[in-house]
Write a protein that binds this DNA or RNA. Structure first.
Ligand SMILES: NC(=O)c1ccc[n+]([C@@H]2O[C@H](COP(=O)([O-])OP(=O)(O)OC[C@H]3O[C@@H](n4cnc5c(N)ncnc54)[C@H](O)[C@@H]3O)[C@@H](O)[C@H]2O)c1
Ligand SMILES: NC(=O)c1ccc[n+]([C@@H]2O[C@H](COP(=O)([O-])OP(=O)(O)OC[C@H]3O[C@@H](n4cnc5c(N)ncnc54)[C@H](O)[C@@H]3O)[C@@H](O)[C@H]2O)c1
Lengths: 211, 211
DNA sequence: TTTTAATTGTGAAATTAATCACAACTATGA
DNA sequence: TCATAGTTGTGATTAATTTCACAATTAAAA
């Protein structure tokens, strides 16, 4: 019970996501091969950084001829391969939950939202492609779909309770939108998204840059 | 035109946001003073980290008696003081835009969403406390409220166009939800939130931890 | 076939961040 | 008043990340 929000992805690993996104874009535009500086410019990092990252993951290019995009994509998929088509649930179908459940890009990236949950019975009748279920169904769904990851979109007040319950039911990882630091046992992954902090960072830095 | 998504907040600065949040919580629970390990536990970092961070910002405590919460809050506000009550706009009032515009916590944190914008005329009739305006009104609102920061919640395809237009109109900082790396001149602050990447990170790490 | 110019791959150096370790301080109780 | 135990404050150390710099490679031109 010491580390709470640890298990932060290494910077280089996280950048692979960005590279993949850029590479898909390049491919769509008809490119076949790219150089580290092309990818770097698109991804917002230096060319050296790109090469260094690939070096860490033993991804090889061709001197003078750059990298074959398909090879890069294959190599990146290899790093993340075992996590494709994972099932995810969302708890809390208020404003942010509703937005997330309709976000098609999760599916494109092979992350499958299998169900959502809300305590409010009036919401349970509605559906956005996937059903909105009462909390009593959590156990069943988690077992049936072998769900390991949940998105927390309930009010701050309820977040810790819901997380405790979900851990009991076998959930191991959380993407948490409630602005609270969750208390969890070791070896539970918690990743907090605090949009107030993010917006405030932007304001802070904007004022610094503007002087 | 070299660095794109730079101006990342220093880690210690960003943690101040978390500390503030925790301190407000402690205060609400009736506490008056705290020790570095209390705050560390609540914030999910070590006690040494807390003390080191305060040390960097010259925030002093009292040996043996810890820190006075009010003093800490005052000191943290001092770091961020000049950015209170900043005006912000949102562009794109689809799923995520609607969720954000209704998020009351921005206001609690003294960040004021003054207006939102959408290209779709049928959305412009609706309102969620603040008006949804056509893009023609951007110039007027930005000038009138001295807006420097915008939240981008338009489809990927439109994001770069909108950002170009906003930069022309004087916007200096962006919180961008569209999963594209924006091309901007130097000294424009861009902070990307890529929720697919975040969810995928959680899945990746969860699988690593579970083995 | 040889030369050339462009690009990769990666140690080394520099920077940034986190942890350690302990001296200095101070509230409290003897 | 003095001793003590519990905390802070921070320099030193270690770890992570980025940048630098350049040798090795190679596609393409001569
Ligand atoms: N709206 C936003 O843009 C936004 C942005 C960032 C973070 N957040 C955070 O996300 C969370 C949800 O925000 P929101 O704006 O969607 O709030 P909301 O009030 O619109 O939605 C909360 C939903 O959770 C449900 N709920 C409440 N208790 C529950 C429980 N114990 N189990 C299951 N469901 C429960 C409610 O019925 C409601 O549908 C909050 O913690 C908020 O701080 C919201
Ligand atoms: N829905 C989510 O949960 C979610 C999560 C993360 C990121 N995003 C990203 O946020 C963006 C918006 O997503 P969404 O789900 O809200 O999409 P959406 O289609 O629901 O909403 C997009 C809105 O932008 C408006 N729009 C389109 N072009 C515009 C323009 N040029 N100027 C002004 N307004 C314009 C549309 O009329 C629409 O109202 C996308 O880039 C998406 O990838 C969405």
């Amino acid at each position: 019970m010491k580390q709470i929000t640890k298990y932060v992805l290494r910077h280089d690993t996280k950048r692979l996501f960005t590279y993949r996104q850029c590479l898909i874009g390049f491919k769509r535009k008809g490119f076949d091969r790219i150089f580290s500086y092309n990818l770097g410019e698109e991804a917002g990092v230096t060319a050296e950084q790109v090469r260094k990252d690939f070096s860490v993951f033993k991804i090889k290019g061709n001197k003078k001829a750059g990298y074959k995009i398909d090879d890069l994509l294959t190599a990146i998929e290899e790093v993340f391969k075992y996590q494709l088509n994972q099932h995810v649930i969302i708890v809390g179908m208020g404003n942010i939950g509703k937005a997330l459940v309709q976000y098609k890009r999760f599916m494109l990236r092979k992350m499958i939202i299998v169900a959502s949950f809300d305590i409010d019975p009036t919401k349970q009748s509605k559906r956005w492609g996937i059903p909105i279920l009462p909390l009593e169904m959590l156990d069943d769904i988690i077992k049936r779909f072998h769900v390991k990851v949940a998105i927390i979109a309930v009010p701050e007040m309820s977040a810790q309770d819901i997380v405790n319950k979900l851990i009991d039911l076998g959930i191991k990882g959380f993407l948490n939108f409630a602005p609270v630091i969750l208390k969890t046992p070791e070896n539970i992954v918690v990743h907090n998204i605090n949009l107030c902090d993010e917006l405030e960072s932007v304001i802070y830095y904007t004022q610094k840059v503007v002087e």
